[in-house]
């Protein structure tokens, strides 16, 4: 009894400290590091640069194209209404500063300085200048974490805008992704625009992804193309977060604990489609 008590006197505090350290580490793990990211945002937010307004006068060609785009969009909406095509109302867009990058090197993620309080939810779509960038995988009250499409684990169903050939992309390196086609002989050539397809379960259809850089039709088992992403993934400072009509609220809770739902969901799409063709 005495020996036990002496042992406890000597090691009790140490044991308590170990327990405390492990306990708090476990807590941080279970809460996905929410607290740390909130503190990080508190420190980082004063240093965020304001977005620079471009004062360069627009090219007349660009203006013309923009006007034509607006015209086509409104036409498209009217046609969809005529067809009774039901689309959920897209929510508000939030502009969010990029305040950090992934906390280790195996995942391509960015940390945003806006969170649930600004209406960002798990599954929201994140886009930068020129195209989509990724998907929110975790949101705290004031920060959110985005899995980039350049991550090797995120796979998205896409389509070639010109010929409607389907395929899926997987991340390769910083600014390139690989597109695998479902067709054996796809109609694709360098310069074609790639957009998300309507078969993707995680992204709404028609969002611009990038431009075909090179095509390798002899690749086995499926033809491949290298896509250059239109958004500058490495130099993102501000992004736009928009709510995702395809994000299922019931899924969002389980998504946060899963390493990478993008693969499973989009691949089931992929295999289904592949089987049909």
């Amino acid at each position: 009894m005495y020996a036990a008590r002496r042992w406890w006197d000597r090691n009790g505090i140490r044991l308590g400290l170990i327990g405390l350290a492990l306990g708090s580490a476990w807590l941080i793990r279970q809460t996905q590091g929410n607290l740390i990211y909130e503190v990080y945002r508190g420190i980082a937010s004063p240093f965020v640069r304001q977005p620079v307004e471009t004062t360069v006068p627009k090219d007349p060609k660009v203006q013309e194209l923009e006007q034509r785009l607006i015209e086509l969009q409104s036409q498209n909406r009217q046609l969809q209404e005529l067809l009774g095509y039901v689309q959920k109302n897209p929510g508000n867009d939030t502009v969010a500063p990029v305040i950090g990058r992934s906390a280790d090197h195996w995942w391509h993620q960015i940390i945003l300085g806006r969170g649930q309080q600004d209406g960002i939810q798990v599954g929201s779509i994140v886009s930068g200048d020129g195209g989509i960038v990724g998907r929110v995988v975790q949101a705290t009250p004031n920060t959110s974490r985005v899995l980039l499409i350049s991550d090797p684990t995120s796979q998205i169903g896409v389509t070639v805008s010109r010929s409607r050939n389907m395929g899926y992309i997987r991340g390769q390196s910083a600014n390139r992704v690989i597109m695998e086609f479902f067709d054996k002989v796809p109609d694709v050539r360098p310069g074609d625009v790639i957009a998300t397809s309507s078969y993707s379960r995680l992204f709404p259809p028609g969002l611009p992804v990038g431009i075909v850089e090179s095509v390798n039709l002899n690749k086995s088992p499926a033809p491949e193309a290298v896509i250059e992403l239109s958004a500058p993934i490495n130099r993102l400072e501000w992004v736009v977060v928009s709510s995702n009509p395809k994000a299922d609220p019931s899924q969002s809770s389980s998504q946060s604990s899963q390493p990478d739902p993008a693969v499973e969901a989009d691949l089931t799409d992929a295999s289904l489609l592949g089987g049909n063709q």
Partner: peptide, 21 residues
């Protein structure tokens, strides 16, 4: 080892827990 375990769990929380750091 205890220090490694503690920091590893925290880093798991900050990225993805599988595979564990």
């Amino acid at each position: 080892a205890i220090a490694g375990l503690t920091l590893g769990l925290i880093q798991d929380g900050m990225t993805f827990p599988e595979p564990t750091h």
